[in-house]
Design a protein around this nucleic acid. Structure first.
Lengths: 242, 242
DNA sequence: CCCTCAAAACTGGTACCGCAGTTTTACGTT
DNA sequence: AACGTAAAACTGCGGTACCAGTTTTGAGGG
């Protein structure tokens, strides 16, 4: 689809969003309207519009007359977002178990198998950002396949939004998160396809919480390291900047 | 709160949002940047910024160079939003039952009693928009009290947002919705306070679904009436088919 | 060498203006 | 009166300029 140039603000929005989600603009990265405008070949106005939108979505934060930047979340916010995900995805799983057609159930099993294969490859090879991003897209697609099968588009977008935030915020951790148990998604898919709604929801709850615990540990570790670096950097350094 | 005049765009945002939520700008109402700018005593720029934000939140829709208006949702969107509410509030209830302190549990029971008293008054008196709005605020406060007790602010804002949309969209129906069973919220509160997490979640599910069914019926009725009116108005019209 | 503080270099916020679409109006034809 | 159509009115979009803050810089005093 080369169809989409609705307007400049929309282009800027998409560009910035993609850049943030791909980690090219990590949390804390400065977002100067004028600089971005020059880079995109437009005036600062549509860039500002895009930033307003991204701010409403929680990806960007702006301090009046002191600059915008990619939002840096507190660890508690990440935990809260996992809580949100648990609420949304368990409900999604419940609806899936209640209403999904046989064809969709088949597709879910197939997608789970592919996804698990991808994760196992990820496990055996050294870290590669490109490959990692590709698998992560598969992962998102897997969960959205469940959500879409419920026929409730509001649920889909809510899950997507919550995932977007988590993925962006966890980009820094993604390289060092441990692998998943073999057959992790296949097991989930089986519960969704063949189980009762209650069982499907509980399987999804377990699924979401597994990663959550791991992420929480990593975040604590990261906070410790950051504190230590802060202490060390107090002494000698002067920031010369880009 | 007369405290927060951060900037003009923020003022415009608050003004418009309040006007929409109070029904002064009903779904479909035109929102001209220039007209609103004059009304607010500012230039069209901050108004546009406010509209961008409201659009991101789903309250406003904009057709390029053809005007913005308060968003008119399809019935399916309202149904989808109830699905979202079910996901969020059942989880909220579950967390409440797991973690709420005794003091908060007491407060919830008290709030439920007050709320039920309010609804019973609403039932016995003729419709009054002001009184109705006051009770509705109490209702929102009751549900947010549950959410806040979970300690997860992300859950609170998600519920708030979902409620905002529903309340706005259902404003047209609110006058003619039937009353609730006596002790409706007290019963829910009891389940949350004394029940197991599973029971709390199920009680909330029943609670959300009850109103949902009623609203769905009203919406079907409304759609029938709208279709009839449309047929009658078809005569002198032409089809340009954008 | 470190600290102080004012000036310079940036920042987002807003006004004003013109552009290119869309919608409404109004007029001329049948 | 009913239709088609052209013009007028109005719309959101975007560019440029300016303002009032914030942050960074850099020179001078200790």
């Amino acid at each position: 689809m080369t169809v989409s140039p609705q307007n400049l603000a929309h282009d800027a929005y998409r560009n910035l969003r993609d850049a943030i989600l791909e980690g090219r603009l990590p949390p804390g990265a400065p977002l100067s309207r004028r600089r971005l405008a020059e880079q995109f070949g437009m005036s600062p106005v549509p860039v500002g519009d895009a930033l307003t939108r991204l701010e409403a979505e929680g990806l960007v934060e702006t301090r009046a007359r002191a600059g915008s930047r990619v939002r840096i979340p507190a660890p508690s916010e990440i935990a809260g977002n996992y809580e949100l995900r648990e609420a949304l995805e368990t409900h999604s799983a419940r609806l899936f178990a209640e209403t999904a057609s046989p064809a969709v159930r088949e597709r879910l099993l197939a997608a789970a198998a592919r996804l698990d294969a991808g994760f196992s490859i990820l496990d055996r090879c050294p870290y590669d950002a490109r490959r990692h991003a590709r698998i992560e897209r598969m992962h998102v697609a897997f969960h959205l396949l469940i959500a879409r099968a419920t026929g409730c588009s509001e649920l889909v977008t809510a899950i997507e939004r919550s995932r977007v935030l988590l993925f962006n915020w966890l980009f820094m951790l993604s390289a060092e998160l441990a692998g998943l148990p073999p057959g992790w998604h296949t097991e989930l898919a089986k519960a969704l396809v063949s189980g009762k709604p209650e069982e499907a929801a509980e399987a999804m709850r377990t699924h979401v919480r597994y990663r959550r615990r791991e992420v929480a540990e990593k975040l604590r570790e990261l906070a410790r390291r950051a504190a230590k670096q802060e202490r060390m950097a107090r002494g000698p350094q002067r920031r010369t900047g880009k």
